[in-house]
């Protein structure tokens, strides 16, 4: 399946991907409003990591054989039959954090309200996820490998 891959040699560490992810998953969908008012309620699905001078954008790998799917006690974590994306249904999630415990990429986090798990949803079937679309240096790509 198509996945988001980081090209760390191109990443500037600007964190625009995190902000765009936040906006895409906000209520207002407006960058200033989302950043000012909704930042405390939304956990971006992408996180920029850094080690020394190297930075890199990381999000859920939507694993072929996903440990979070096996570990989920509610059935909230599920695979979209059409896109293959691993998604979390926040309504079903009870916040047991079995997924947080088992994700080898550390890409499932607690939502800001600590009620449900939060992760990349590949922008819910959009042709190109916003983090990829808005990266100023093509440091994140969306492709089949």
């Amino acid at each position: 399946m198509k996945r988001i891959y980081a090209r760390e040699e191109f990443c500037l560490g600007c964190r625009l991907c995190e902000i765009q992810c936040l906006v895409r998953h906000s209520k207002s969908k407006k960058i200033i409003k989302a950043f000012r008012q909704e930042r405390d309620q939304i956990t971006p699905g992408v996180m920029v990591e850094s080690a020394g001078h190297v930075t890199f954008a990381m999000q859920c790998r939507h694993c072929d054989s996903a440990p979070c799917l096996e570990a989920c006690i509610t059935g909230a974590m599920h695979r979209d039959p059409k896109t293959g994306a691993v998604l979390c249904d926040a309504d079903r999630c009870v916040g047991c954090w079995m997924c947080v415990m088992t994700c080898p990429a550390g890409a499932v986090r607690r939502g800001k309200d600590q009620k449900a798990a939060s992760k990349c949803d590949l922008c819910a079937g959009d042709k190109t996820p916003v983090c990829v679309l808005n990266c100023p240096n093509e440091a994140i790509v969306y492709e089949e490998r």
Partner: peptide
């Protein structure tokens, strides 16, 4: 506990 799975992965592998 966020990112705890990084350790689980290291243990398992």
């Amino acid at each position: 506990i966020d990112r705890a799975g990084l350790f689980t992965g290291l243990i398992r592998s």
